[in-house]
Design a protein around this nucleic acid. Structure first.
Lengths: 202, 202
DNA sequence: ACCTGAACACCGTTCAAGT
DNA sequence: ACCTGAACACCGTTCAAGT
């Protein structure tokens, strides 16, 4: 297992992130990254053992951007702040963001964010034994929401399409007036409010 | 826009699903599917316009398996039944399942599942205006949980790794005793119980 | 109506070599 | 210490042709 160079890792990750942001995850090839860095594809293998490790590095990079200011306020405000920052991150990097759901966040920055969430939950009065579970529940929801929104699962149009079918979808019929494309800012806020009500008297 | 043949679509999707289940999503190439069906790669393009449409077909196939029995019981039992069935689906098809989070479920079977969820929520007393939002919240959480569990975000080991760091992660220190790998069946059940409490007095 | 063959412009990665 | 060149075994997809 060769030892990796680190000198140009940040530069390489920056190039990779830029390509993914500009042209999508499919365009993110080792060859494209190499070209952008101004080097032969093979040179990258001195810094990352393979493409998968480069993607892990990209996840680490995203997590860095998630834990900036220590943030004052009570536990609820701090929880909310992290949730909104996460969603913002998904809008800035829609192609790379989904990787967060597939790789455990074991980087120092990832741990830092999780630790902040733990602290807030403890402060909220959640029993120690329940804190990790509630953290996973919250992060799963927030990441899932952000992916769904940014990648079209909540897409406009899907609801209208559904409404057409009558007999097979009676509830859709009844709810027809409420199936229009939603205001996702408001929906996210409402979901968070509901989740906060779980946390308080857990 | 050429009209597509439908005759062998199910056969092709079956082959594709088998490859993904056996060898992972990376191994799911048009060429591999063609070989399994016993045909030239190009023959597939008579049935699906491109690989992306084949993947959409695969999502549709998964959704079929999600709405079998009409299921008796009160709204809570029916909601729970769909949630557990979804999670079971993720364990059976871990490679393909994540696609559910990236593509709107506009197939007839997808609409059928959503309609069941709508009916249950209406019966639970959720105001019509909130039903679609609550459905999105639930499905986002359930799909997100199932992906996280099946794809290693909740991976064993990640928590132990975290605990090592001291000063930078005080809450991890305090929770050390509760960070061991969890019983995901129990955790999923507890999460669902919490979410049900949101639904009742929405 | 359904399928094939050859070709194009790509991939990730290994190995041996170069400064 | 860092990088390159050539090669291998793959990709998705188009186009023209074959039965």
């Amino acid at each position: 297992m060769r030892k990796l160079k680190t000198s140009r890792q940040p530069e390489i990750l920056g190039a990779a992130l830029a390509i993914a942001d500009e042209r999508g995850l499919d365009a993110l090839s080792m060859r494209a990254v190499a070209e952008r860095v101004g080097v032969t594809p093979m040179a990258l293998y001195g810094y990352f053992r393979n493409k998968d490790e480069l993607l892990d590095g990209l996840v680490g990079r995203l997590l860095t951007k998630l834990s900036p200011d220590d943030g004052g306020g009570d536990w609820e405000e701090r929880l909310r702040a992290i949730a909104w920052a996460t969603r913002r991150l998904a809008r800035e990097h829609p192609s790379v963001f989904p990787l967060l759901l597939f790789r455990p966040s074991v980087t120092p920055d990832g741990v830092k964010v999780v630790d902040r969430l733990y602290q807030a939950l403890i402060e909220a009065g959640v029993p120690d034994a329940d804190v990790p579970r509630i953290e996973r529940m919250l992060s799963t929801f927030v990441i899932g929401f952000a992916i769904s929104e940014a990648n079209g699962r909540f897409a406009a149009g899907s609801n209208e399409t559904r409404t057409r079918r009558g007999a097979e979808a009676p509830a859709h019929q009844r709810l027809a007036g409420h199936l229009a494309a939603s205001d996702w800012d408001a929906e996210f806020a409402a979901d968070l409010a509901d989740l906060m009500r779980i946390i308080r008297p857990v």
